[in-house]
Every structure is written in C-alpha cells, then in structure tokens.
C-alpha cells in the first residue's frame, strides 16, 4: 500500500543541516501492523509525519496506493488525509471547547457529511470505543484514557485505511494504555493498516514488524518476539535526551 524510496528529510538551520531521515526505503503492506522504535531524535515522528502527508520529503519518492505524493497539490493532500489517514497523538489533541461527539464529528464536518448522518456515525464510533455514555462530555471532563479513546473514534470516523499513532500510550497509565492498544489491535484485525511510534517494548511487541531507527536511518527490521527489554532505546531514563 505504501512505498518509500530513498526518503531524506533535511532540516536546514543557518549554515547547519540536519538529516532527520536518511535514505529510508520501506514498504508497508495493506493491513500490516508496524511499530517504529528508536532513541529520541532518531526521526520516528518525522517519518510518521511524512507517512501522514503532513510533511514532504526533501528527497525521495513516496507512493500511496501507487500515487506519487510529490505530484499532489495541498488540497489533494488534505483530501488524502481526510479520507485515507487517521492520526492519533500522544497529547490527544481534542478541541477543548467541543464535546466528545463534536470532536469525533470534526473530520466528517470537514468532509461535508450531513448533520444527521454525522451524529449517527459519531455515536457508533463512540460506542465502538466503549464511551457511549460520554457523548456530551468535554475533554476536560474525561480521563486521559477516555480522551485517547475519543481521539481514536475521531481518527476512524472517516473509515481511513491507514492509522498513524505517535506514542499513543505515552501519557497514559498501564491499564488505560492497554485498553488503547486493544482497540488499535481490533482495528488492525478489521483490516486497517497501523503504524505506531513507541518507546514502550509492550507496545512494540504487539506489532507484526518492528522498525528500529537511529540517526534518521532504519537500522534494524525485527519481528515482535525479537523485541528485547534490554534494548537501550527502551531505557526510559534516556527518553527525551539526545544519545
């Protein structure tokens, strides 16, 4: 479904340039569940942003369903994000003044879905994440886990084929985190393609494939059982620090 060919992403600051991604070549098959791990600053988020068409590679080719992303204009990219891609963020990013239903409806509102259909679909999405009784709650009235479940309901409200999650459990306790991971697993089983960036070996172990990044490169491709707690990238003490 997705083909990355020799992707580079270079940030130029003054006379310095920093390669956040270097020569990344990778294929994501439809229905796959891929975890992306690596130390802080290794380029995981940058890769996810490019996959989500929020960012464009400095060099290289990105094909989504055979379509070259490079050739799409901003409106077509927005259209692609709206219809094919769902985002889940570590910070949830719910609109604080809108209740759970309105937050879930947001992508459908952008797509011009009629009000009635919108609220039916939002309700169904809310039920599917187990929050049928929280429809009118605002984000401030929800726990972290509940917020992330609303965010998932929003991400899947347009029935995307690709779901991108950047540290989806990073702000959650173990129990809520597991609920979120179970939800994501379920979605993956229904056929959605899932890419999850994580620092947590438990999260990575749920994936079919794990990509390990370092200094902007994919340095290892391993299977879930090969994920070891001993890998220094999982040393929580180092999260957020430059290696």
């Amino acid at each position: 479904m997705i083909r990355l060919e020799d992707i580079w992403r270079t940030f130029v600051m003054g006379d310095q340039s920093l390669h956040a991604l270097q020569a990344v070549t990778e294929t994501f098959a439809a229905g796959e569940h891929v975890a992306i791990i690596g130390p802080s600053g290794s380029g995981k988020s940058t890769l996810l942003n490019i996959l989500g068409c929020l960012d464009k590679p400095t060099r290289g080719q990105y094909f989504f369903d055979g379509r070259a992303i490079e050739s799409l204009d901003p409106d077509e990219l927005a259209q692609l994000r709206l219809n094919e891609i769902g985002f889940i963020f570590q910070a949830f990013h719910l609109v604080p003044r809108l209740d759970a239903t309105a937050n879930i409806e947001l992508p459908m509102t952008l797509a011009g879905v009629a009000r009635k259909e919108r609220s039916e679909r939002a309700r169904a999405a809310l039920e599917s994440v187990g929050l049928g009784d929280r429809a009118g709650h605002r984000p401030a009235e929800l726990s972290g886990g509940q917020k992330q479940r609303v965010a998932i309901a929003r991400a899947i409200s347009m029935q995307p084929r690709l779901l991108l999650a950047d540290e989806p459990t990073g702000n959650l306790d173990t129990h809520s985190g597991e609920q979120i991971l179970d939800l994501l697993d379920g979605l993956n089983q229904e056929g959605i393609t899932l890419a999850v960036v994580t620092h947590d070996p438990e999260v990575a172990r749920r994936a079919q494939r794990v990509l390990e990044m370092r200094d902007g490169e994919i340095v290892r491709r391993i299977s879930a059982d090969e994920v070891s707690d001993a890998n220094p990238i999982f040393d929580r003490g180092r999260v957020g620090k430059r290696p």
Partner: peptide, 16 residues
C-alpha cells in the same frame, strides 16, 4: 495553534 494544526492534520484544506 494546536487546534489549527489538528484541523490541518485531519484533512482541513487551506480554504477551510
């Protein structure tokens, strides 16, 4: 800003 970023991420066009 966060809200605007979110709108764009979930597929809002510049015009919207």
């Amino acid at each position: 800003r966060a809200e605007i970023g979110l709108l764009k991420a979930i597929g809002a066009t510049h015009r919207q």
